[in-house]
């Protein structure tokens, strides 16, 4: 009896305020899409970091023949310089460096020929044009680079120390900013959603004030009086959240899986599974928002 009665009340409430219900659904839909997008961008950044930071290395470029760098005044790096650097790496950077690999000019030339079989921009290059380097794989590229760079920069035979990670930084920066913008818009939209839910519930409570006043007089419990309103807001918001999940799923499918992943295939992307991972959080946010705005509103409008 109770459940049936409450469901009936909810149904009639939602129908009576149809336009408001639809606007609540749409606003939560849009706002949670932004929330979800921000979350997905963050997940994408995480995936890129996992994926690339495993591969990136710190490159210690050794002095070539005629480098203008002051540390290379003594000319090309000698075998002794390289051995000295390796000792330094072993002794001082044992904790930070996971793996060391010395790329000689011959190795560099072989890699070059593999990549550009016809010469770079039609300029034929020889082995002598290549630069030898020491490649370091760090245990934790996020924090250890500074230490490694401090220790090795300026040593004899070292022209420069370069963190490959720096190449990706602008990309991460752009993605981070995009997710911040999405989160900012999400915040504004969520505020709009809260205000709208509040107004909707207020309208609903007002249009049913006769019923609620009678309910109070005949001794209906607070929960019984407020639950229909509470659930009305929550149902509308959760429907909005489901739309947001659907929208994000379709978006990721078309934009990322079917398009971006096809054209640039060498990185890991977020996919439908990640959207489903975000989904419970979005639905939870919708429910909590609706519940909070309901409780605040109802406290004022259906007081015992």
């Amino acid at each position: 009896m109770r459940a049936q009665f409450i469901l009936g009340e909810i149904g009639s409430g939602l129908r009576r305020n149809l336009s408001m219900t639809i606007s609540v659904i749409l606003v939560t839909f849009v706002s949670l899409t932004f929330v979800g997008a921000a979350a997905l961008i963050q997940m994408q950044i995480g995936k890129l970091k996992d994926d690339w930071y495993d591969r990136v290395e710190v490159t210690v470029y050794l002095c070539p023949n005629d480098s203008p760098a002051p540390t290379c005044a003594a000319g090309e790096a000698t075998e002794d310089d390289i051995a000295g650097l390796q000792t330094v790496i072993d002794d001082e950077l044992g904790e930070q460096v996971e793996r060391v690999y010395v790329e000689s000019k011959a190795d560099a030339f072989a890699a070059f020929q593999e990549r550009f079989p016809d010469g770079y921009m039609s300029v034929p290059l020889t082995e002598d044009d290549m630069q030898a380097s020491i490649r370091l794989k760090l245990v934790d590229p996020e924090t250890d680079y500074v230490v490694v760079s401090d220790v090795l920069t300026g040593r004899p035979g070292v022209e420069s120390v370069e963190d490959q990670r720096a190449i990706f930084e602008p990309l991460f920066l752009a993605l981070n900013r995009a997710s911040l913008i999405a989160a900012g818009l999400a915040g504004v939209m969520l505020l709009a959603a809260v205000l709208l839910i509040t107004t909707t519930i207020r309208l609903s409570a007002f249009s049913r004030r006769r019923e609620t006043s009678i309910m109070r007089l005949v001794g209906a419990s607070n929960v019984f009086i407020q639950l229909p309103f509470l659930l009305e807001g929550a149902i509308a918001a959760v429907i909005g959240a489901l739309f947001a999940v659907g929208g994000l799923y379709v978006g990721v499918q078309y934009l990322v899986t079917d398009w971006l992943a096809q054209s640039v295939s060498w990185v890991a992307y977020v996919d439908g599974t990640d959207v489903l991972f975000v989904a419970p959080a979005l639905i939870g946010i919708a429910f909590v928002l609706a519940a909070i705005s309901s409780v605040v509103t109802l406290r004022r409008y259906t007081r015992i």
Partner: peptide, 29 residues
Amino acid sequence: KIGIVFQDFRLLPNKTVFENVAFALQVIG
């Protein structure tokens, strides 16, 4: 434990006589 009656009746216009009376029992479960 208290019934109350008003000058202006306070019935629900969109409910029948039966539903109006039943309402008082429905809402207390």
